[in-house]
Write a protein that binds this DNA or RNA. Structure first.
Lengths: 214, 214
DNA sequence: CGATAAATTCCACGGCCGTTGAAGTCAACA
DNA sequence: TGTTGACTTCAACGGCCGTGGAATTTATCG
């Protein structure tokens, strides 16, 4: 067989939009295309608003392939929600160091998660879907407490209560919702550095008490 | 005609579940029943998740009556989103008084809005629907800036920037989402008084600068 | 080469959705 | 009393949804 000819045909002319069924030759990358399209749709419209047909179309693929690779819509959602492994590491790294700058470092990595393309989609999807309906709220709750509070609590010494950590989390959540989900004017327009400078003291006070009153 | 007889029939025995069409005798309260059911559904499931058929069923009414009284689903949503007139008044009242307790009073009325049955449903519906999808976010944004920031700004003296007011708003939004929408453990379980005591200083510092460092 | 498994397409089902039109029944007013 | 208009029910339309099964083509492995 002639590999050179096959290459020319495959990269030059489109394969004339074949509509017949059957396995394609070469690596198709279909699985990843579906996941990427799913991330985008879930992030933009939440679980209910996203439709498998639209996801498939965006991935340039038949709807049946979603079922083939991922099973049900729920399974696809779970796959789209996977976060990079490095998140806990980055979080714990932010927790070590000068305790007087803890708030600053914490909001810095937090904003980083929302701006990193590897995690932003999943975060948007989680928040959008969890807030949309009563039923899905558990997932956000679990993730919030499991990922953040649990990681946070041991590093802060047992002195401060769970409530103060939760309030810091609520503040961060509010900032993320305003800046990245709703994109409300004043907060979305703020420079990242300005934003950190403005809200770091509040986070700091929640986590280490009212000591640093400079 | 016999008013007494009519009264007995109407209030005593059920009108034997008549399925025939036609106007009913007496005041039906249908319009209000629809609005109440709509508030509940929109609050619990957001705009997309709520269905006219379920709303009609919850109101014990035919779907066509929704159309008759309110028109389209959008129109019904608008009607369900109307907030009590007293909200701006309560807000401005909270803004006058001892400036050192501004944060405390502000979060107090804010929590009040979320706990008052007259406004809680509409707030839930707005947040749920606005966060669910890109497209609907404008409504929350408009309401946030129009109702809260605009009312707030003139009362705070021109010295502090828009950004700090917005950050206070973001913090309040985060608290409301955690406590009333997602109902995340630590914050939802908190006593109202405890909650106010814990987060009032943060709000206060955003609005009046880092002066009260007691 | 032959068999098995993977990747892909198409079509159809049942269900829920928002909307619409037609018709029935009663109150209110002239 | 007769007419008009408000209230109410029902049946249907077209559309999108998630899921499922059947058929087809190709790769892979024995």
């Amino acid at each position: 067989m002639n590999n050179a000819g096959w290459l020319v045909v495959s990269s030059g002319v489109e394969p004339e939009n074949r509509r017949t069924a059957g396995r394609r030759t070469g690596e198709s990358g279909t699985r990843d295309a579906i996941l990427a399209a799913a991330r985008e749709q879930f992030a933009g419209k939440g679980y209910d608003g996203a439709s498998l047909r639209v996801i498939a179309a965006a991935a340039g693929v038949d709807t049946g392939l979603i079922r083939h690779f991922y099973g049900s819509k729920d399974d696809l959602f779970d796959a789209a929600l996977e976060l990079p492994d490095e998140i806990p590491q980055r979080l714990t790294r932010a927790l070590t160091g000068d305790p007087d700058r803890l708030g600053e470092r914490l909001i810095d990595v937090y904003l980083g998660f929302w701006e990193d393309p590897a995690s932003a989609g999943a975060l948007l999807a989680i928040v959008r879907s969890a807030i949309a309906s009563d039923h899905a709220a558990d997932r956000l709750q679990a993730m919030l407490s499991a990922r953040f509070l649990a990681d946070l609590a041991p590093h802060l010494g047992g002195t401060i209560g769970q409530a103060r950590v939760a309030l810091a989390g609520a503040h961060l959540l509010g900032i993320a919702v305003a800046r990245y989900v709703v994109r409300a004017g004043p907060i979305a327009d703020l420079d990242r550095a300005e934003l950190i400078a403005l809200c770091a003291p509040a986070i700091q006070r929640y986590l280490t008490g009212p000591r640093p009153t400079s």
